[in-house]
Design a protein around this nucleic acid. Structure first.
Length: 566
RNA sequence: CGGGCCGUAGCUCAAUCGGCGGAGCGGCCGGCUUUGAACCGGCAGGUUGCGGGUUCAACUCCCGCCGGCCCGGCCA
């Protein structure tokens, strides 16, 4: 059995679809839909539904519709519609011509509602919201009938028309389905189908002042679009009987709703309310702050969209509650980036190195491999001279044996350049190391082994001091210190106390190899031995390029140190 | 003794119609290396929530418990 065979390529939804197709319950092709409400930005949580709906349609040679579920005009904005479309495209999915809006169906939905009233299956209720709530009963006791429940259908039809005509104020009348006030499923206790809302809609303007509720609109919209499988998250399981009830009473196309568990991820929050709190209280700079789990933020951070798609594929689909380790996502990000990211050299915390035996004034160009994982990526020239910067943490005055990097009297390789040996350490008055004096071996050009068979264990990245480009780098880390950020830490009643103080570190004196002056926005680079970084298009200025750290490289040395320390 | 859903390795998921419980991630150890990355090899980790029953055989079927999540918006 090969690796590929053991990957979880199937799950219960596929099994259901296969059954349905096999028994002729639906005709191929499969039609699915992703139905976000345009009331905010898409985040990591949404991407699971996107991948499942678009992914399944693709896998079965079907189509996936994008439907903006815009039934509540007071929360929805065009800005969000635009953002959602951009985010889905970025993820790599395409709905083609199939862009729909629930509001496109308002007239049809209205006509069907009238039909249900005429059939004695719905009625206009004039109770207040509070009265309706009280009459609904509780989880353990049945509800009671509304005094308006048995009014003549003709009266309800008339009232519904007058609601639509704008005769009644918000909250005064609702249309309710007449089902079963004693049902153990609260969704069946005469659910509200329509409410009066004198609000202007982003698309229909002031045409309507009655708007359908989710439960009434969603299934019918699926049906109108001939969606074969309506895939949604677990909390809608209790709604399925109602979903099926409307379709059955109306005698329309029977979409099948199937529910799956949403994916929770450690150290991240995906509650819209909580994300809003982070933005509003200034804990992040905005919805696109690279620490946010929104797609716009992950894009800015340099996450490759393929990594997110791979992540959900790897994780699989099931119905049980879950809390996926963020390490899984990070693994997918690194895997994708390792394959695709162009390699560059950058020194985050520069320490000057002077090569005392290098010909004064000389400069050479070194050939550097752009991506060892991709032979087609080719090479580039990187300038080298007698004054360089190396990473401060790559030098230790009193180095332990396991330290492979530079130390007094020790020799290391400069990647793709020369071997150098540390001869002298220069310090300032405070004892801080300001410069290293080294010698180089001309026989090691390109970083090659010298003819005498000498060995060296460490390879360092470097940047020519003469040619370096200055930059600001932002080091991002988990926003929270707790696996489940929504639970306040011990002794606190505020979940925001889980906020990490180390989620952003800004470095202002970073030295980049000169080619990075032309870094492309939207490309994530690997700064060798350091991590993955991308240009921050929004904060970069003409004078100072800004780079965001997408993610670190795995760091065995740091891990070893941490273990020793702890 | 309201209803619905769900319990398999630390995490996420597999396991044909009932036939020797596996993989990825994470962890640990080792190899290789011009990135302490990547890559390669190995190891640890399970009373399949618990208790009964049916069966030659149960993660799988039946019964009973226990535990977790969801549901009382004119939100979606």
């Amino acid at each position: 059995m090969t690796q590929a065979d053991t990957k979880p390529t199937t799950h219960f939804i596929k099994a259901f679809i296969d059954e349905d197709l096999a028994c002729g319950r639906f005709d191929a092709p499969l039609v699915t839909r992703f139905p976000p409400e345009p009331n905010g930005y898409l985040h990591l949580g949404h991407t699971k539904a996107i991948c499942i709906n678009f992914g399944l349609a693709k896998a079965y040679g079907g189509t996936c519709h994008l439907r903006l579920d815009d039934t509540n005009p007071i929360k929805e904005k065009q800005e969000y519609i635009d953002g959602i479309k951009q985010d889905i495209r970025w993820l790599g999915f395409d709905w083609g011509e199939h862009e729909y809006y629930t509001s496109d169906y308002f007239q049809q939905l209205y006509n069907w509602a009238v039909k249900l009233i005429q059939a004695g299956k719905a009625y206009i209720d004039e109770q207040t919201a509070e009265q309706i709530r009280e009459a609904r009963g509780t989880l353990t006791t049945p509800g009671t009938h509304s005094p308006f429940r048995d009014r003549p259908a003709a009266e309800s039809v008339d009232l519904f028309a007058r609601m639509k005509a704008g005769e009644f104020p918000d909250g005064s009348h609702v249309l309710r389905a007449k089902i079963d006030m004693a049902s153990p499923n609260l969704n069946l206790r005469d659910p509200v189908m329509y409410r009066v809302l004198h609000a202007s809609h982003p698309r229909t303007g002031d045409t309507w002042c009655v708007y359908p509720m989710y439960d009434y609109a969603h299934g019918q919209s699926d049906s109108i679009e001939k969606i074969t499988h309506s895939l949604c998250s677990l909390e809608f399981e209790d709604h399925r009987p109602l979903y099926d009830w409307f379709i059955s009473e109306l005698g329309i196309f029977p979409t099948r709703q199937i529910e799956f568990a949403r994916g929770n991820i450690t150290y991240t929050v995906t509650s819209k309310r909580k994300l809003m709190e982070l933005v509003d209280q200034g804990h992040v700079t905005g919805w696109d702050d690279p620490r946010m789990p929104t797609l716009t933020a992950m894009r800015r951070r340099g996450y490759p969209p393929n990594a997110i798609v791979d992540f959900w594929e790897t994780v699989g689909v099931a119905k049980r509650e879950n809390n996926i380790e963020v390490a899984m996502l990070e693994h997918c990000v690194r895997t994708e980036l390792n394959k695709t990211a162009p390699r560059r050299m950058a020194v985050l915390d520069p320490l000057k190195v002077v090569i005392t035996n290098y010909p004064e004034g000389q400069t050479e160009e070194m050939d550097c491999i752009n991506n060892p994982e991709d032979p087609d990526a080719g090479t580039r020239k990187v300038p080298f001279c007698g004054e360089l910067y190396i990473e401060r943490e790559d030098f230790m005055e009193d180095a332990p044996k396991k330290f492979f990097r530079l130390a007094p009297g020790k020799e290391v390789r400069l990647r793709s350049a020369y071997w150098i040996k540390c001869e002298e350490v220069i310090k300032d008055d405070t004892g801080k190391i300001t410069e290293l004096r080294c010698t180089y071996d001309p026989q090691t050009r390109g970083g090659n082994n010298p003819p005498d068979g000498r060995k060296v264990k460490g390879t360092l990245h470097w940047v020519s001091a003469q040619h370096a480009t200055n930059a600001q780098v932002r080091l991002y880390d988990h926003l929270f210190t707790a696996e489940d950020p929504t639970t306040p830490p011990k002794g606190s009643d505020n979940w925001l106390d889980n906020l990490s103080s180390d989620s952003l570190k800004t470095l202002d004196h970073v030295k980049l190899e000169p080619s990075l002056a032309d870094a492309e926005a939207g490309v994530t680079y690997q700064f060798e031995r350091v991590g993955y970084f991308c240009l921050d298009a929004t904060d970069t200025t003409a004078d100072l390029p800004v780079f965001n750290r997408t993610i670190t490289l795995k760091d065995a040395w740091a891990k070893m140190q941490k273990k020793k320390g702890g």
